[in-house]
Design a protein around this nucleic acid. Sequence first.
DNA 1: TAGAGCCTAGACAACGTTGTCAGATCCGGA
DNA 2: TCCGGATCTGACAACGTTGTCTAGGCTCTA
Lengths: 349, 349
Amino acid sequence: MSSSAQPARSPSPRYGARPTMKDVAARAGVGLKTVSRVVNGEPGVTPDTERRVQDAITALGFRRNDSARILRKGRTASIGLVLEDLADPFYAPLNRAVEEVARAHGALLINGSSAEDPERERELALAFCARRVDGLIIIPAGDDHRYLEPEIAAGIATVFVDRPAGRMDADVVLSDSFGGAREGVAHLVAHGHRRIGFIGDRPRIHTATERLRGYRAAMAAAGLPVDESWVSLGTTAPERVRTEAERMLSGPQPVTALFAGNNRVTATVVRVLARSQRPVALVGFDDLELADLLSPGVTVVAQDAARLGRTAAERLFRRLDGVAEPPQRVELPTRLIIRGSGELPPAEG
Amino acid sequence: MSSSAQPARSPSPRYGARPTMKDVAARAGVGLKTVSRVVNGEPGVTPDTERRVQDAITALGFRRNDSARILRKGRTASIGLVLEDLADPFYAPLNRAVEEVARAHGALLINGSSAEDPERERELALAFCARRVDGLIIIPAGDDHRYLEPEIAAGIATVFVDRPAGRMDADVVLSDSFGGAREGVAHLVAHGHRRIGFIGDRPRIHTATERLRGYRAAMAAAGLPVDESWVSLGTTAPERVRTEAERMLSGPQPVTALFAGNNRVTATVVRVLARSQRPVALVGFDDLELADLLSPGVTVVAQDAARLGRTAAERLFRRLDGVAEPPQRVELPTRLIIRGSGELPPAEG
DNA sequence: TAGAGCCTAGACAACGTTGTCAGATCCGGA
DNA sequence: TCCGGATCTGACAACGTTGTCTAGGCTCTA
């Protein structure tokens, strides 16, 4: 055992030897503050001095440490986005739209997936707050967001998207789930259907219950009864959705049409119907890629995910610019896209 | 004008009045370091003291400022991901997979889209470096990454995905584009096609040229000539792809099959073929949602985007754990999924 | 009861940057 | 020649946290 008594001078020399402004200053033979001025393009530096500093910067490969800058300035120029699943094609355009707006405001984007787990949503949001993001955009997984109150009070602007905050008054941008579902179901009714099934997401999710409410409203408006066996709320796992769809399609009083509560449900139902003998009408909430190429094409109630994200992000940055208004609820319209599956007439089993 | 001579004490009082450890310490009647110990769960604090501190923390709504922590510790527990487009369904699962691995290692994810613009890729990567991310995962847009050399030398681990780094030796994880394309084209040849078109992405993109190389190799292996009018590289904008596909399908020597170089191209080609009188065979690179439900189903060469992301992230964290090996190139296999469109026999115009 | 040893607690410096302020230099005009 | 003013520059403190080091109180044993 050689006693290699390394003194371990500095606490943690992780980075090779990251030069600091001090190093640059020493090399250029100027003061620390002058380097800061050059790096930040502040006025009051002679061209000659500036060149000397620039040379030292490139020679040493200096890059400003934004952690220190953030600590000093108090603003991070970054925002956090908590969404349900980075891999869900519905949220991808929303993510991108938020990024574009952030970029236009010179901010970076930190994001994470809650996986519909309220605890994980909370962890992520609070971790972002600890990083002192300037603002948060959240697609709620949980139904109680009071944990964010101290953060918001401390100045972290927060906007909710797709679903409202729970037990709290805050800005929210969402699609008109109720109206969209009502329109979609009314469309099926208009094509002669009287027994219409509804397969949606878990009832804890706001949009799921809103869409169910829209379904019931459309049925009621048409004077149609709703048999509770036609209604199914639960996970969007393909097995469950398939079982439920098959159940509704069989039995003594089978449905002649289905309304699918979101993109994942629609994709599964399309697969089930592809194997069905009898033609069954379908309207889905959320658009799907290639939906127009299936036969029949899938009629959907489309929401504009990119616009949701853009609107929320713009609202956030208005808040960051100091606009103080009471929390606002923005509801974006949906659009019924007719492609064939929703226009099939009722066919008895 | 009332002369409200506010002295503006602190430089920028952005945050309402974020309490610090000092405030907590004062309120709990303990020393600063004791608060730090409690917050970080370090040993050596009496249960009684700990409770007093915890009470003060909740009373004040304290949350540790990670910017200061990062500055002090030198590690940020965050990684940066630069991809091409957050909204591209192909990259979404990759994004998610990277996030999962980061989460398992207690790291946050910062990400951004390069939009295939090398300059923007560079800006993003360097902005992440200024934030002192521990590591970078990059889907290259440019073909010269030497700008990262100082950063890597300074200790920022970097792994490239989907395409290799330009003019630099670095870790890279990618799919076997050459082999996949060759297999897909050979599949068409095996079904009797002799005139096969290839529509790919811009030649600056590594995967695009690799897939073209695979196409040529398969044709050559079958002893088939390639007419240059059958080959098209350029943007994946639908208009261009449509024009090119229509061009190849008409004329004196029309192709009887098409190979589509990526998911966006495939989606457009499927639309073109849907309107074609004559059945034309198609194999696409990258899988598509609902591809199995079209008629015919779309035969594809699928890559596992999630595995790409997972593999790259795991490699990155091994590097961060101090594994020092020469840069490594990992090539993941692709998988031919037979669904019908690739098995159509040649049909003369 | 004294000394050794352990445990808890706090003082202090440092991380790398930026805001404040004051010193140094140079110019033109009287 | 000297002064006012403008311009350029650097010393210093502060941002909020963590690592180091030392002080003080306690227990235990001889």
